[in-house]
Design a protein around this nucleic acid. Structure first.
Lengths: 134, 134
DNA sequence: CGCTAATTTGCAATGGTTTTCATTAAGAGG
DNA sequence: CCTCTTAATGAAAACCATTGCAAATTAGCG
């Protein structure tokens, strides 16, 4: 049975805070940090703690509803399409393109199988300088 | 001109601390954290600060002499072969296999080129449960 | 050797994230 | 509605990693 509540996809209960984070992300196509999300919510009148923002973002990431981009110093979050994909990120301006390819999935699965590994997951990030910055 | 001093590959000077970190890593095939490296060195009588350990490990990683594995909470370091490769890591026991494949490199380069990106780099990690833990 | 310049070191302070634990509140069942 | 159970919240503490800056160390040179 699928959930009809907007926030039920993460955790077991619907809370004001989950809805607020989710709404903010859906309205914003940019990557933003947990701290930025927190400040924006507080400024817009939402009562929410920084810890809670971190936890909700983490849960959303685990559920595949947001992308996580780990920079050297911090982690950035962005609402994303729910299908499996990877990122092509500009080192200069952070412009991001979602990319997908079966070949990589198969390569990862096969490499793992050859060494007797099961329950395989993988992380892939591609970085470069985009055309506009180049 | 190539360096003949064991630690000259990182930075411009040979110090006791660099040699100590390098020796420890070469004797240890496992991934370990900066903090673990620090504790082990101090316990074995080396006078060295935690900050310095972090900096040396960072420099070694930049020079390609050690692998960095970013987990959720910390970064792990391990001495590695100097050729480009990726990792297959057991989620349970952290056993690690170095894997390599041209297909992934080419895929990344091509995906980037299609979107007009230059100077492409990529990070790839594969996780699973190894045969012994499975 | 001893002097000097410049890198390296390490403590302390900072930044970002996670954990702990007492409190709050969601929501199921009277 | 009211109550009860349990998950979620949030303030403070803990944690990992980085940065600023003064002191110590290295290595080149007289």
């Amino acid at each position: 049975m699928t959930s009809d509540s907007p926030t039920a996809q993460v955790g077991t209960r619907n809370t004001r805070q989950k809805a607020a984070v989710l709404n903010l992300l859906q309205d914003n196509p940019q990557f933003c940090s947990a701290q930025q999300v927190h400040v924006q919510l507080v400024n817009s009148g939402e009562g929410i703690g920084l810890t809670t923002v971190y936890r909700i973002l983490q849960a959303l990431a685990g559920a595949g509803l947001v992308d996580v981009l780990r920079t050297d110093t911090e982690q950035l979050y962005r609402h994303c399409s729910p299908t499996h994909h990877h990122h092509l990120v500009c080192r200069s301006c952070s412009r991001t393109v979602e990319i997908e390819d079966r070949a990589v999935e198969q390569w990862a699965a096969q490499a793992a199988a050859e060494h007797g590994f099961r329950e395989v997951t993988h992380t892939v990030e591609v970085f470069g300088i985009c055309a506009e910055c180049g």
